[in-house]
């Protein structure tokens, strides 16, 4: 900020606010990590001994492992489908002019505005009618609806940075639409597609409400956590939490790195010699 612009309050006030917010955001995450290594059954400030016994217990728990398998299957399939849809739609929007174009975009951005409980009820009712309630497939289908808007937003932002002429220029030089897409658009969009896959994977891995309502007996990891929340203090939840944090945070940070690096290289390219 320029020197002639002074702040209404001294800098330390604003920075204290910044610290406070990060404490609120990260303290619960950190506490899960610390308590996951505490040997005590009840989490408290004076930890008597550290151990990895809760980790051993989690990995020996068939129920958790089954949930983990479900979660990974669902998250992988969701990431695959949601990223495909989330790239195809903005690409069509970027490449073609057609009737109802804005409506498609609006439709795709609608799900995040619907309260997750309401969406869960709608999904539960729908899948019960078609006889798919309680299946892993139903969770995947619903998770795709929840995750696609994220993939779409990421891909759209990236595609907007590509001047339309590049693809047409390739066709003008003899490339078919398929070749132009493969040789010009995909290399440009690759970081966004990667980031979209990571984020949609994280979103699905973390989603509990729909999985809880629609999944029936097919439990995912967040649903087992939700069930534990309702019961007694259970130290294994810290282990699951720590692993979940590690997984989703690395996914999200990897996605952010991908996007950050691509925008940086994009900016370098814009610099005129």
């Amino acid at each position: 900020m320029n020197t002639h612009l002074k702040h209404a309050l001294p800098a330390w006030v604003w920075f204290t606010g910044l610290m406070l917010v990060f404490v609120i955001l990260y303290a619960p995450i950190q506490s899960a990590l610390v308590f996951s290594f505490s040997a005590d059954r009840f989490p408290s400030l004076d930890i008597t001994r550290f151990s990895t016994k809760w980790y051993a217990q989690v990995f020996a728990d068939a129920r958790v492992l089954e949930a983990l398998k479900n979660s990974l299957t669902i998250a992988l399939s969701t990431a695959l489908v949601a990223t495909t849809l989330g790239f195809a739609a903005p690409y069509a929007d970027f490449r073609f002019r057609f009737f109802g174009q804005r409506m498609v975009l609006a439709l795709a951005l609608l799900p995040p505005t619907v309260p997750i409980v309401v969406l869960s009820l709608a999904m539960l009712a729908f899948f019960s009618r078609v006889g798919l309630s309680g299946t892993v497939g139903a969770i995947i289908v619903a998770h795709v609806v929840v995750a696609t808007p994220f993939a779409m937003a990421i891909c759209r932002l990236r595609l907007e940075q590509l001047p339309q002429e590049y693809e047409t220029a390739a066709q003008n030089l003899g490339a078919t639409p398929g070749q132009a897409l493969r040789l010009i658009v995909l290399p440009h969009a690759a970081p966004a597609i990667g980031a979209a896959a990571l984020i949609t994977f994280a979103v699905s891995l973390d989603e509990y409400a729909i999985a809880w309502f629609v999944g029936g007996l097919e439990q995912t990891v967040p649903v087992t956590v939700l069930n534990t929340l309702q019961g007694q203090v259970d130290p294994t939840i810290h282990v699951i939490g720590t692993l979940a944090f590690a997984a989703t945070l690395s996914l999200v940070f990897a996605a952010q790195l991908l996007l950050l690096r691509s925008t940086k290289s994009h900016k370098n390219k814009e610099v005129s010699p």
């Binding site: 001047p163 002429e165 590049y166 220029a169 390739a170 003008n172 030089l173 010009i184 290399p187 440009h188």
Partner: peptide, 13 residues
């Protein structure tokens, strides 16, 4: 009918 574009549209990659 190749075209020389206003912004040149050289492929950046």
């Amino acid at each position: 009918t190749p075209l020389v574009w206003q912004n040149l549209a050289l492929f950046p990659y």
